[in-house]
Computed example of a mutant assay.
Amino acid sequence: MASAPIKFGILGCAKIARKLSRAIVLSGNAAIAAIGSRSLEKAVGFARENGFPESARAYGSYAAVLDDPDVDAVYIPLPTSLHVQWAVLAARKGKHVLLEKPVALSVSELDVILGECESSGVQFMDTTMWMHHPRTHQMKDFLSDSTTFGQLKSVESNFSFPADKAFLENDIRVKPDLDALGVLGDAGWYCIRSILWAADYDLPKSAVALPDAVLNDAGVVLSCSAELQWQDGRAGSFRCSFLADLNMDVTILGTNGTLSVHDYVGPFQENRATFSTHVKSGSVLEHTVTTELPQEALMVREFSRLVASIKFGAAKPEKKWPTLSRKTQAVVDAVKMSIDRGYKIVDVTY
């Protein structure tokens, strides 16, 4: 017998919350219970504009969502500088935490969040949506095949998009008091996660930012690139930018084969995604993967499954997801430190 749906509260009316609201509805095992904003009027308007069920409650504060006894889990799309405050409070209230990336401004901040989630027995997951697409699992099957792919040698990952003047002047991702990591925490998070994913989450020994970073007048990174190095010779490189044309390419090179994908962050088509593989024999294959649900709905479904196993089955929170967030944040920290130190090589610590 299927368990009751996991009831979500949403903290804030960020643009990305529109996509997640739809994902909650589509997931099949979750429901929207509440939305909170600093303004009741804004919360009511957001609920109306996004077709929330009549049963969903609108609140004029984030705290009111956390105090709602019907809310099982919260999705937090607030500016990164607010994550520690609200994720910790959510965990203390017994709410499971689905946290927008970047999850924190540093590993030390993230440790505060993860420590509270662990002590409170709640599930933590970040919103790196592409990890939940079935294409990702099929690509991993190719990378895990020692005959067709071989041993990993290098990964090149990119995520850029051309931000307009209004974005570069007003978006929270360019404000030092809101999202001080800028493009590194936003687009760079995806690049770093893709490299770690290809390397089976084995952390690199060191990171170095290349001397091409572009910062705004407030010191927030708008564009940067970096190289990662492992002790065994594996290498990773990435470029993230608010100042270049749309690019979501990843190329993964092995001793026997290569994998390439052009839209890893978000498939160009919601229910259909592709990637290509090349092997030493010279054969190039184009792979198409279909899915009934978009990747964000699959993410909500998996998160809600984990929450349900805790709520209804007495399971313990899955540690995989907080571990992956912490490893990604550790590399973000190292690249940011490299930029701050004048592009010096920095050891990645975990």
Rank of each mutant, 00 (worst) to 15 (best):
E302T: 15
Q85G: 08
D67C: 11
Y59T: 10
S108C: 09
V279L: 12
K316F: 10
I32A: 13
D145E: 06
T251S: 14
L99R: 00
A315T: 01
S21R: 08
D68Y: 01
H137E: 12
V220Q: 05
N29D: 04
R22N: 13
F238H: 08
C117W: 09
F238E: 02
K175P: 00
L152H: 05
M125T: 05
L210E: 12
L253K: 14
D263L: 01
T323Q: 13
R135C: 05
P102H: 01
T288C: 12
G121C: 07
D70G: 09
L285I: 13
V332S: 11
I310M: 11
L11H: 03
E227Y: 02
D72A: 00
S119D: 14
A199N: 08
E116D: 01
L222A: 06
L20M: 15
W189Q: 14
W321T: 03
D67F: 05
I24H: 05
L293H: 06
V348W: 04
Y264T: 01
L298H: 05
Q123P: 01
G9C: 01
S106V: 04
V103M: 09
P322T: 06
L98W: 02
E296N: 15
S39T: 09
S223T: 12
L259G: 02
S223H: 12
G121D: 06
G254S: 04
T128H: 13
P5F: 05
G282A: 08
K344R: 12
V97Y: 05
Y343G: 03
P322R: 09
A198F: 02
T128L: 15
V208C: 09
G36N: 09
A308N: 06
E41V: 08
I310H: 07
A198I: 04
K320W: 11
S338T: 03
V103D: 07
V307N: 03
V74F: 02
A73C: 07
K320V: 15
A17G: 07
I16F: 13
V44Y: 07
D72Y: 05
T251V: 13
N216H: 05
I24V: 15
P211A: 04
A91Y: 01
A56E: 04
S225V: 02
V84L: 00
T258K: 13
A297P: 01
L243W: 02
S157C: 01
S27N: 00
L222R: 11
Y343Q: 03
G28E: 02
D200A: 14
A166I: 15
I32M: 11
H133K: 06
F275N: 07
G12E: 07
C117K: 07
S144C: 07
V331C: 06
L203F: 03
I345V: 15
E292Q: 13
G233A: 03
G236R: 03
D232A: 06
R22D: 15
S206R: 11
M1Q: 13
V332D: 11
E169Q: 15
Y190P: 01
S281N: 14
E296C: 06
T127F: 08
A34S: 13
L306E: 15
D164I: 03
M299T: 09
E270N: 10
A43V: 08
S206N: 07
F46T: 10
Q229N: 14
Y201G: 10
A226E: 01
S27W: 03
A90F: 06
S194V: 00
D164F: 07
I192L: 05
